[in-house]
Design a protein around this nucleic acid. Structure first.
Length: 546
RNA sequence: GGCCCCGUCGUCUAGAGGCCUAGGACACGGCCCUUUCAAGGCCGCGACACGGGUUCGAAUCCCGUCGGGGUCACCA
């Protein structure tokens, strides 16, 4: 029997899934699925940081993973916060064997040691500091807070990385005694990750390159606990196009800049803005001043609404952001897979099944990759073009479910299907949404673009408006209200009058949509219906100045 | 700054000593199609970071320089 491949994704719950995390999850998932029945993909929630972890954040994380279709094989999710007893038992035995010890340094002392290291231009290395028995007893009787540190055996630590190659690690002079249990009694990431991976039988660990040096700590722990060493593969990091790190804070930054601009331009006070967005004014002002503070999703959308910043103006960072802007999960996944991995040769467009079949750690690259949204957009366009009508309707409904403000939420499945068909060639579902909204507006509420009216209808002695009048008569007399019949009638008119089709189509477009851009006009008219079409033409003609 | 990783078109990459006057995709530019916006078709622009070696021969191997990134938490 082939030996099993067990991979895992072990995020800490901080809300919706970051694209970097999504790629890590994808690679781990692909590796497991590539091994078919012998492969398992496990999910574990690393919530040892009690202050940061919330139930809602976990739910959001799971929502994104499900949307991507990266299903995990363990029915029961593993929460590290619920396993303290397991970790403590092991830590206590480590202490009794002299392999770990309690350390009583205060934060101030540690900071001082770090500063000293910095002054001497060397790395800060914590090694066990001998304190007398007497002082130890005094600390204990005082109940002074302490951490537990692992007494890392001092030697070279080297391991073979499946991505970066053999001989990774550090020399003996870089090893240090890291914390394995925090003063609040929770294990640190380094400890919990090693114990859990061993207990869950994880054989292959794919994670970001920022973890490369952590591996040394993990190996040292594995040796002390007689755990097998899994295969490690450290993935290149995904960066912004400008080379900065892709961070949730990018969205806050964009909003913050826009808010500042808005406040200075509109001459409104921060507290006005805060009130309009139903935020506390101290919350808003604190956030404006401190770039480390972050808004949550509902605060973000309230604020952007107030200052007129659109969702599509913000950089997508989280999987949820892409979903909200109308990307298809298969396109995101295909694009993400190619950020750091490729099957060799010129192969780019792949289905999930193809990726599963072709995936191998050997195809993972070593250098960091920049996230180019333009390419993702092209992938999405192709994925949408390749999707079946049913698939697109389902995707559109998913999009609408998290964009509740869209009037398209009133559309039936059949109507959505028609709209999607009209918009064939679209790039994003958001584009379909925004370009089809006029179909759901009230006839007497439609907004007209002044430039469009001027250019298409008023110019040249109201030529466009005159054409509209003619066309109105033709349309009202039409016996069959269907796309072919409308098209035929208009074409006949165009030939009679020796006009270009544009001279008729554009006025019509403006009249029913309010702008010079819309889905194909004849199909739009059919969709709107005769009554609406005529009402809009009448109202529009009346709006054209002399 | 110490330690560590990386370095092919603007971007993602193919390339594992001769197949490379370096291939593909996206972006960009031009043309075509066209009732708008897209989509689509065709053509084009465009890179082996630099300097030394090794070799008959290097994008591919070695060294150095430069550049980018990671890490130096009681966060993961």
């Amino acid at each position: 029997m082939a030996s099993a491949v067990v991979t895992r994704f072990a995020p800490s719950p901080t809300g919706y899934l970051h694209v970097g995390g999504a790629r890590t999850a994808l690679f781990s998932w692909l590796l497991a699925r590539h091994h078919g029945g012998d492969g398992r993909f496990l999910l574990r929630i690393e919530d040892t940081d009690l202050a940061r972890s919330t139930e809602q954040a976990t739910l959001q994380l799971l929502e994104d993973l499900r949307w991507l279709g990266l299903h995990w094989d363990n029915e029961q999710l593993v929460y590290q916060s619920k396993r303290s007893h397991v970790y403590n038992a092991i830590i206590d035995s480590l202490i009794s064997r002299g392999l770990a010890y309690k350390a009583y340094d205060t934060p101030g002392e540690l900071a001082e040691m770090r500063k000293a290291a910095e002054r001497e231009k060397r790395s800060f290395i914590y090694r066990r500091r001998e304190i007398g028995d007497e002082q130890l007893r005094r600390h204990e009787s005082e109940g002074r807070p302490h951490v537990v540190r692992f007494a890392t055996p001092v030697k070279d630590y080297r391991f073979d990385d499946a991505v970066l190659g053999p001989g990774q690690g550090v020399a003996a002079d870089q090893v240090q005694d890291f914390v394995i249990r925090k003063s609040d009694g929770m294990p640190t990431y380094h400890f919990a990750v090693v114990v859990d991976d061993a207990e869950m039988g994880v054989t292959h660990i794919l994670r970001g390159q920022e973890h490369l040096l952590n591996t040394v700590n993990h190996i040292a722990l594995q040796e002390a606990l007689s755990y097998p060493r899994p295969v490690y593969g450290h993935l290149p990091i995904i960066m912004n196009l400008d080379g900065s790190k892709m961070s949730k804070r990018d969205r806050d930054k964009k909003i913050r800049d826009a808010v500042k601009l808005y406040i200075s331009k509109s001459k409104k006070s921060p507290s006005d803005v805060a009130a309009a967005a139903s935020l506390g004014s101290s919350r808003l002002e604190g956030w404006i001043k401190d770039s480390k503070q972050q808004l949550d999703i509902s605060e973000q959308s309230a604020l952007t609404h107030v200052i007129g910043l659109k969702e599509s103006d913000l950089p997508e960072i989280l999987v949820h952001d892409f979903r909200k802007n109308g990307y298809l999960p298969e396109a995101l996944l295909n694009f993400l897979a190619l950020l750091g991995w490729n099957p060799g040769g010129d192969r780019e467009r792949m289905t999930m099944d193809e990726m599963v079949q072709l995936f191998s750690i050997a195809g993972i690259g070593k250098s960091n990759a920049k996230f180019d949204r333009a390419k993702l957009l092209a992938f999405n366009t192709e994925a949408a073009a390749a999707a079946t009508p049913q698939r697109l309707v389902a995707a559109m409904k998913d999009y609408l479910s998290i964009n509740p403000d869209s009037p398209l939420n009133r559309a039936s499945d059949e109507q959505l299907g028609k709209i999607l068909e009209m918009k064939k060639g679209f790039r994003l579902l958001r584009e379909v949404d925004e370009s089809a909204r006029f179909l759901f507006a009230a006839d007497d509420q439609l907004q007209y673009d002044a430039d469009a009216i001027e250019k298409v209808l008023r110019k040249n002695d109201r030529h466009g408006a005159t054409v509209l009048q003619d066309v109105r008569g033709i349309l009202s007399a039409l016996s069959d209200w269907s796309t072919p019949s409308i098209e035929h009638a208009i074409n006949t008119y165009v030939e009679q009058k020796q006009l270009g089709l544009g001279k008729v189509a554009q006025p019509l477009r403006v009249a029913v949509s309010g702008t010079t851009i819309s889905p194909p006009i004849f199909q739009s008219l059919e969709f709107l219906g005769r009554a609406s079409t005529l009402r809009r033409i009448d109202r529009c003609v009346a709006l054209v100045p002399d």
